[in-house]
């Protein structure tokens, strides 16, 4: 396969986050498809990079997003480029995932001005659910550095999409 064009060490890896994800899509005649595995998310000097991995650790897809554009690398497949990461990632996951706010969700950050509505909190004042950019988002399994689990339900082209994300507490 094409050797990866951009190796992590060529750009300074500032911050790395690991965890697990699943994206479940269900059509009206209840055909279901699911992509499940673990991820490594790295902030690079000029953007960020997301590796999707199988339980045995093999990297199945690498999405690199820079100001100049986005690139999707998959073994045994030609390199794909696009202006933004969203539609590239959708090809792997089968649904569009809100990349711009995903990082906030993984860190349990809810930015009030970002079209966030219906915020609900628990007795400790921690946010447990809200709506944002067409997604119904639920936080739970709160650890000391924020919610460990994010579940987001959305509707896309008549299909319901459930994104689940469990971020490992930063080591």
């Amino acid at each position: 396969c094409a050797a990866p064009v951009l190796k992590p060490e060529q750009s300074l890896v500032l911050k790395e986050r690991e965890g697990k994800f699943s994206v479940l899509t269900e059509t009206s005649n209840d055909e279901r498809e699911s992509v499940q595995g673990s991820f490594v998310w790295r902030r690079l000097v000029s953007g960020w990079q997301l590796d999707l991995k199988s339980p045995l650790g093999a990297t199945l897809a690498r999405l690199t997003v820079e100001p100049t554009g986005a690139m999707l690398e998959q073994p045994d497949a030609p390199l794909q480029r696009a202006d933004s990461g969203d539609d590239l990632l959708a090809r792997v996951l089968g649904a569009t995932v809100p990349l711009d706010v995903l990082q906030d969700w993984a860190d349990g950050r809810v930015i009030a001005d970002n079209k966030v509505t219906d915020v609900e909190r628990d007795q400790l004042g921690r946010i447990v659910s809200f709506r944002q950019s067409g997604w119904q988002v639920d936080f739970d399994q709160y650890g000391d550095s924020g919610p460990a689990r994010v579940t987001a339900h959305g509707k896309q082209l008549g299909r319901s999409v459930t994104l689940r994300l469990v971020a490992q507490q930063p080591s």
């Binding site: 697990k20 699943s22 499940q36 339980p55 469990v166």
Partner: peptide, 25 residues
Amino acid sequence: TPQPQLVASDGRTLYQHDPDLQQLT
């Protein structure tokens, strides 16, 4: 550890279970 992920097969069916995500494929 650190995060559970269980994969099993009985020779016909492949099970992929993630207890944190509460999902079994």
